[in-house]
Design a binder for these strands. Structure first.
Lengths: 246, 246
DNA sequence: AGATCGAAAAGATCTAACCTATTTGTATTA
DNA sequence: TAATACAAATAGGTTAGATCTTTTCGATCT
């Protein structure tokens, strides 16, 4: 039985950050599932046994399971227990799931799939943005672009400006679900980009491409915006593949 | 204080189906948030007060909140309480969120956004499917199409076959995230379709379009597949708009 | 007066112990 | 043999209370 004494630090039962306990457990189990350590169809140990094993209360464990279940990773029923769901039920585009996936080096196939999806969605978003952008949108994009040019992509400020530029484009497309989709993918992929730039300094100047995209949106030319965004994603993919195969 | 006596049925504290209590509470609150009854920024009553109000234990209530929080609808912190998140943090493409949204007559703008996204994604998926389909994929599509022709879209069997046809196409595209995206959108939109067919019998024969799509995929012609799928989504949108404005 | 530190309060967070409901396999019975 | 009743396993749900975090507010010191 677990003893609670003041002199030992029991606040981090699992290797985790400053999250709450249920969040830590959810993350750890989520990563374990996404990395394949628990496979679809596997039955987890019973609530009591597993929560004791993890050194958390049953309540905290159950809240963690609720989180995973909300994201489609597990399903639990009385008598049967809690089992890992089939991959087709996972909400692969959930921001947390993407984050957890990238926490343990995702498969190349998955990264390719994500870029394929970006290649479908982002050019279309750029085209919509070119058709619908307001003056405020253009100002935001212009400002971000300027910041980006000043700091370069090797600094945190520069990358933040890059993000802001792309976010501004997305929001100019005026489509909630599309924004939700693209932003979570972009955020996830950005981490590999950071990782990438750590190994090799950036291989080419990204500014001309970004400026061309901006010009197309200013001009209100959807097809030009689509073309330039396609090119941007293609280059990002090329960079990422280069980083994955050093 | 709450009394538990045997002679009253307390199994459905909220108007709900056969879900577990935490699921019912999550659904009810989720619908309330998505329909705008609780607005972003609103602070929910404290755990104790709210759970008593809902006639459930604090534990069940907390598990419900974990579910909503996992989907980005709410955020809770000590001292501040639990508040409804900004709309930009909602996981609009989560299957449950879509379901809850369609439970209380979504806005026309939202439906338009969804079709816009379908129009972007599904033709691209069809093109990929045409390039990558295997013999097994073709067999599944062919069989579904046959079933669909036999039963017609006004029967449950026919609609199931239609679903199976589209699912087979998606899976032939061999892209996990793309499948997750399209299938949840399609499922949500299908409900409006069912609703639609209840009012008016189907306005035209959908089989020729479906067959053309099938032929393009059999022929391995991505561009033809893209064109025909675009047409299919366009018609679905037209039907839906007709149903929304009777 | 202003800055700094500490105590208090409010809320979620976490624990523990216990009871209930659901499901499914199995033995019993018609 | 088929329907039915029982039993066991497991998640689901309740309660009461202790703990941790964060913010606010006030007292003290400069």
């Amino acid at each position: 039985m677990r003893q609670l004494r003041g002199h030992e630090d029991i606040r981090l039962p699992l290797a985790s950050g400053s999250r709450r306990i249920h969040g830590s457990v959810a993350r750890d189990l989520g990563v374990a599932i996404l990395s394949g350590r628990y496979a679809p169809g596997d039955v987890l140990p019973g609530e009591i046994e597993f929560s004791e094993q993890l050194k958390v209360s049953r309540t905290a464990y159950r809240e963690a399971i609720r989180i995973l279940s909300a994201k489609g990773l597990v399903e639990s029923r009385p008598r049967t227990g809690t089992r890992v769901s089939q991959r087709s039920r996972w909400n692969l585009l959930d921001p947390d799931i993407l984050a957890w996936t990238f926490e343990s080096e995702p498969s190349e196939a998955f990264i390719r799939d994500l870029f394929e999806l970006r290649m479908i969605v982002e050019p279309a978003a750029a085209a919509l943005a070119a058709a619908r952008r307001s003056g405020v949108d253009l100002a935001r994009m212009g400002h971000s672009l300027e910041e980006m040019g000043r700091h370069g992509l090797s600094t945190d400020d520069g990358r933040a400006a890059d993000q802001a530029f792309h976010t501004a484009i997305l929001e100019a497309a005026r489509n909630g679900p599309l924004i939700a989709l693209s932003s979570s993918i972009a955020a996830a992929v950005t981490w590999t980009t950071i990782f990438k730039h750590r190994r090799q300094s950036l291989p080419r100047n990204p500014m001309p491409d970004h400026r061309a995209l901006y010009e197309a949106i200013v001009a209100g030319d959807p097809e030009a915006a689509r073309r330039t965004m396609t090119e941007l994603v293609r280059l990002a993919l090329a960079d990422t593949e280069l980083a994955l195969r050093p």
